[in-house]
Design a protein around this nucleic acid. Structure first.
Length: 203
DNA sequence: CCTACGATCTGCT
DNA sequence: GCAGATCGTAGGG
């Protein structure tokens, strides 16, 4: 019953421009498997964070701590951290080991296991805005800090290309959210999102 | 040790 | 539109 999809390869995550990867992840499918049920959603919003010369990045300019260690590891692994003491935010390490580039997934549109995803959110299927936030989608996909460091080529959390087409004109770029502290770097248009009118499910 | 604060979300006004 | 939740991390003493 599940759609055929091709899991993104290691080389995809090894591309050297994190902004390009962030843009190209729009329309790909984020999947998670909890041992019983597959849940997934089309990625509709992302943000790029660069390990060099980017004050918004946790690992900017070689800041190496216990938390950021995963970001310095090999590409294609999950960097998950707790935000505001409540929300688990999911990122993908990219480029090359030692550089700490990452893409934050900010929103998805549910595909597989919608009932289970809605349930995990403690919401009703008819409610709106169920998966359109970085903290919301991790809850829906059952992704938490316990999954920090997960290899996205394994079968717990991964990303597929299902050939979903989203027109270039349906995607916009804007400054990243919630990083006002990043000074002059805050205005960089490193957030990518599918325009509201083009979101799956609208006409 | 102690303090400040955050790549957010919800509920209430 | 705004305050409160809630806790790990980072940085300073």
């Amino acid at each position: 019953m599940f759609s055929e999809g091709k899991k993104l390869s290691r080389s995809y995550y090894c591309q050297d421009d994190v902004v390009t990867i962030s843009r190209s992840l729009i329309g790909k499918v984020l999947c998670s498997f909890d041992g019983k049920i597959l849940t997934s959603g089309i990625i509709t919003e992302t943000e790029a964070y660069c390990g060099r010369n980017d004050k918004a990045c946790h690992a900017n300019e070689g800041l190496r701590t216990k938390r950021t260690e995963i970001m310095y590891g090999p590409p294609g692994h999950a960097y998950i951290y707790l935000c505001y003491g409540i929300h688990h935010l999911f990122n993908i390490v990219t480029n090359r080991e030692g550089l700490a580039d990452a893409v934050l997934i900010r929103a998805v549109s549910a595909l597989d296991g919608i009932g289970r995803m809605t349930e995990r959110r403690g919401m009703n299927r008819t409610d709106s805005g169920l998966f359109d936030g970085p903290g919301k989608l991790t809850q829906a996909l059952s992704i938490s800090t316990g999954d920090n460091g997960t290899d996205l080529l394994e079968n717990r959390i991964w990303i597929e290309d299902r050939g979903i087409e989203i027109k270039a004109e349906a995607v916009s770029a804007s400054p990243r959210i919630g990083i006002g502290y990043a000074g002059e770097h805050a205005s960089r248009p490193w957030r990518f999102f599918v325009n509201r009118s083009s979101l799956p499910g609208t006409t």
